[in-house]
Design a protein around this nucleic acid. Structure first.
Lengths: 129, 129
DNA sequence: CCTTGACTTCGAGCCCACTCGAAGCACCAT
DNA sequence: ATGGTGCTTCGAGTGGGCTCGAAGTCAAGG
């Protein structure tokens, strides 16, 4: 059994620190239905982030970081929340996202090449008298 | 001499068609100082886009498509407008942009890999009973 | 002549994703 | 007890990048 590391829940400030988001953003995500479930509270009412919470935040940050809109992250979260039985839907959502990201990557790379060509022109011109 | 293809200037609708932007966006870009110079007008006051104009629009679309903010495109346009003598500055601007784009590409690719790993998990689970 | 339709300008509106501020409560150290 | 810090909620504000609508003008076709 892995009882070794039962790390204690984190305050919102620590969770922000750990995820690279701000406390404001963490609250906003929760309000907006992006979390799998409402974050647990201490008796004081303060949020307590578990390791699972952090793991999910990392995933959603990756989704956001690849350009998935908030509303689609929410849709994905809702599927996960709904429990077993909709894995195919989740998979379809992730697949569709993957295709979009690949297309986007290809487009950016093509544009970048054209820009690098332009840079080459400038370097040629700048290097010569 | 290449006198062969002296293509006539285009209406804003045709230029929009040709560049994949909307007429609204083309006017907005011009208003916002993103064009190298004000677009020529027909006697009616209607814009007439030349091939040079289209070429520049393609370039600026590539800059935008790689995430360069409007204000920086404007800065680049201003440098170009200023004429010779600031090639080093333009180059520096493009170089800086290139670095940002490469960093961004790397980040997106890393995130995408993690998402693909997740997809792999779902496919494994979905494939089995 | 008169309509049609593509254009013009100007300013406002919209969407997205945060980002912030105000007012209030809870705990902890002095 | 008291001040400080760190949280809470709520709602409003910001910035970027378009996007749109209204009102007017012009050239061509019927």
């Amino acid at each position: 059994m892995s009882v070794a590391t039962a790390s204690p829940p984190l305050s919102i400030a620590d969770a922000a620190q750990a995820t690279g988001l701000t406390p404001h953003t963490l609250r906003y995500y929760e309000r907006d239905g992006l979390m799998l479930e409402p974050i647990e509270r201490a008796s004081s009412g303060h949020r307590r982030y578990t390791e699972q919470d952090l793991g999910w935040i990392v995933m959603l940050t990756r989704l956001r970081g690849t350009g998935m809109p908030i509303r689609e992250v929410r849709a994905y979260a809702e599927l996960c929340r709904a429990g077993d039985g909709n894995e195919a839907q989740r998979l379809a959502l992730l697949h569709a996202h993957r295709e979009r990201v690949l297309a986007q990557l290809a487009a950016v790379q093509e544009n970048l090449e054209a820009i690098e060509y332009k840079i080459g022109l400038y370097e040629g011109r700048v290097g010569s008298p």
